[in-house]
Structures are given as C-alpha cells and as structure tokens.
Simulated scan of single mutants.
Amino acid sequence: MLTISETRQRTLNSPDEIAAYLDEAFRAMAEESPFTTGDLVDITSRAGLAPEIAIGDVGVMLCDLPRQLWSWVLVFTSGGQRLPIQVQTANLAKREQAKEAASE
C-alpha cells in the first residue's frame, strides 16, 4: 500500500473568481454534512456551555460543515433571548422526536 499527498495550486484573479470558488467549496462541504440548516437538534453534552445558555438542550442548526469541530446553533438563553452559538458538532444529534410529533 502506498500513500501519497498531492498539492494543487490555483490563482484566483478577481473578486468574482474568489466568490465563485468559495461558493463551490461551501456547497460541496454542505452536501457532505450530516445536518441541514433548519434541523432541530438536541445538545447531547453541555461541555463548555454556561447554565444560562441553550435552555432545554435544544436548538436549530444554522451552519454545520463536515470535518469541522464546531457548528453554529440557534438557542435560547435563560432570559428568553435567541442566541447563535458554536457547539461542538460531536455534542449534537438530530431531534427525531420533534419531527415525529409534528407529523402526528
């Protein structure tokens, strides 16, 4: 068995080329993601979260990119404010119970 590493270099010459490249990269990453924007999620571990944040241990997925350690999730604070926060992706799970209850 042989493992090789390859590097590719590409020059982006204009803001339009940069934007197109970022758009393509984002779409490819989003397609690989286990979560979709708008998914209801359970926070399965509160490691690193203050007690006043993510009340109910639930939220809505804002952005998850594969092979990244963190995802952006919209949660409530204990004061009733909506707050976008980063949560370790490994500490999130799709909230299947909520989907099942909504369909009944």
Rank of each mutant, 00 (worst) to 15 (best):
D64H: 15
F76S: 11
A20Y: 07
I55M: 01
V41F: 04
E104D: 09
A54P: 07
I53K: 14
N91G: 04
V58T: 07
Q86H: 03
S78W: 00
G38E: 10
V60L: 12
F26R: 14
L62R: 06
R8Y: 10
W72R: 13
F35S: 11
A54C: 08
V87T: 04
K94S: 07
P15A: 12
E31M: 08
S5D: 01
R8T: 04
E100C: 02
T36M: 14
A93Q: 15
A30S: 06
C63K: 15
E104N: 09
A93Y: 09
L2I: 11
D42Q: 12
D64P: 01
D16C: 14
E96I: 14
A19M: 06
G79F: 06
L12K: 07
L83V: 01
I53D: 13
R10I: 02
W70I: 01
G56C: 04
T89Q: 15
I18K: 03
Q9P: 01
R82K: 12
P34R: 11
A54L: 08
M61A: 14
T11S: 10
D64G: 10
I53S: 08
F26Y: 09
T44K: 09
A19Y: 04
K94G: 08
V75C: 03
T3M: 04
G48R: 05
Q97H: 11
Q86N: 06
L40E: 15
T3Q: 08
E6D: 03
A90M: 12
I18R: 14
S71Q: 00
L12N: 07
L69M: 01
D16T: 15
D16M: 15
G38K: 11
P51N: 12
T3P: 03
L2D: 08
E32K: 15
S5Y: 02
F76A: 07
V58R: 14
L62S: 02
C63H: 12
A25V: 09
V60R: 15
A102D: 06
A102H: 07
I43H: 09
P66V: 00
T89A: 13
A20R: 14
P66R: 04
L65I: 01
Q97I: 10
L49K: 06
E96K: 13
S78Q: 11
L49D: 09
Q9R: 05
L65P: 00
D42H: 13
R46F: 05
I4S: 12
T36E: 13
F26N: 08
G80K: 06
T11F: 04
F26C: 06
A47P: 00
E100A: 08
E32I: 00
Q86V: 01
V60E: 14
P84L: 06
S5L: 08
L92G: 11
A30V: 12
E24L: 06
W72K: 13
R95H: 05
A20T: 07
Y21Q: 10
R8Q: 10
Q9Y: 05
P66W: 02
N13P: 02
D42L: 12
M29V: 08
E96N: 10
T37H: 13
V60G: 02
S14T: 12
E104W: 04
A50W: 05
S33M: 00
M1V: 06
L22M: 09
I85M: 00
L40W: 11
A98H: 05
L65A: 00
E100H: 09
L62F: 04
W72D: 11
C63F: 02
M1P: 03
